[in-house]
Design a binder for these strands. Sequence first.
DNA 1: TGTACATCAGTGAACGCGCGTTCACTGATGTAC
DNA 2: TGTACATCAGTGAACGCGCGTTCACTGATGTAC
Lengths: 195, 195
Amino acid sequence: MRVSRDKAAENRERIVDTASRLFREKGFEGVGVDAIMNGAGLTHGGFYGHFGSKDDLAAEAVARALERSVEKQSRYTNLSDLVSEYLSERHCADRANGCTIAALGDEIARQRNGVRRALTEHVRGQLDRFTHLLRNGPAARRRKRAIATLVGMIGALTLARAVDDPALSKEILAVARNAFGEAPPADQSSGRRDG
Amino acid sequence: MRVSRDKAAENRERIVDTASRLFREKGFEGVGVDAIMNGAGLTHGGFYGHFGSKDDLAAEAVARALERSVEKQSRYTNLSDLVSEYLSERHCADRANGCTIAALGDEIARQRNGVRRALTEHVRGQLDRFTHLLRNGPAARRRKRAIATLVGMIGALTLARAVDDPALSKEILAVARNAFGEAPPADQSSGRRDG
DNA sequence: TGTACATCAGTGAACGCGCGTTCACTGATGTAC
DNA sequence: TGTACATCAGTGAACGCGCGTTCACTGATGTAC
């Protein structure tokens, strides 16, 4: 049965949002078109009225997830709070609504161009934002800190999720919050040469 | 045609090694039993004489990859060299023979108990080894640095591989080598409180 | 504003392929004498 | 040491299921008058 154009547009958005969550939760190959459409309250047959292929949807879903993540970040005016939230146990437990890079990082590396290009632009933006949020030192040094902070966040969340033992997982998050949220990780303050 | 017991044992080892490489290269769901057996110079039918299921092989393959990684590390007597090698462009480009956590991290988080448990023990060992390689400061602080270093390494390699642009990828690796291989990342040397 | 028709979003059955798994078979290996 | 038979590692065809994709159909929406 036909549905109004507005309703159809809403449905499309809902499919993208649902996919964006399910992919992060179970991986690209862990979710079928069927599950995505059911999750959006539709049946699988209508899928190809909205998207050319599952891969096309994947590209849109990743782009959507990355946009949302930038929106969420705009609330933070300093990097420490952002890092603390990112490395919280809540975020660690909620893969479906959390960071796309931590949830799908190594699958994205094997993905088609569309997905990888979107991610690359997102990372560039992240590094610029982080560099801007860091207040001390010249831009080049702040950029280095931004990179070290970003990779520390991603690695900590990935490892905390991969590990089986809740105590170890919490320890990793807590130490990383302290290391990347408080002290400047790329600061060569221990007196070594600067490269 | 039957094969000698020694040859059969060799074949089994070769299957595990091949799987360990192919899984890291293409992900658990990106490789079929067929491809693994062909890679080991056999046909798919013989697979179930060696393993109960593809999942069982996955657990063995991950365990094997982690063992190999520990063997490789035993060559290093200081953490800086180890980090530099880990964050080299060579390692970044060679997913099949490289770090299992960076290659399969977020898939492992969704995997069965066998795989996750093996990984957890490996991580514990890694942290102990890193803590031991760090020479300065009390054990508790060295452990924090070990954790920050490990998650920085994993995050940097994951991100450098996910990103589309070689220049950005190289920048991430270079900055991370400097941040995690030279200065102590968990060092609160900038004068903040210690937690 | 109301009516008649065309459009098309969504449905559900069906297709085809790939993949994990099974199985009857083969022929070299291992063993008993 | 040699022979006869049993064992069993590996082969390749086949099975069954799931999944991405297609398609004929439905009936509400959109439109023309």
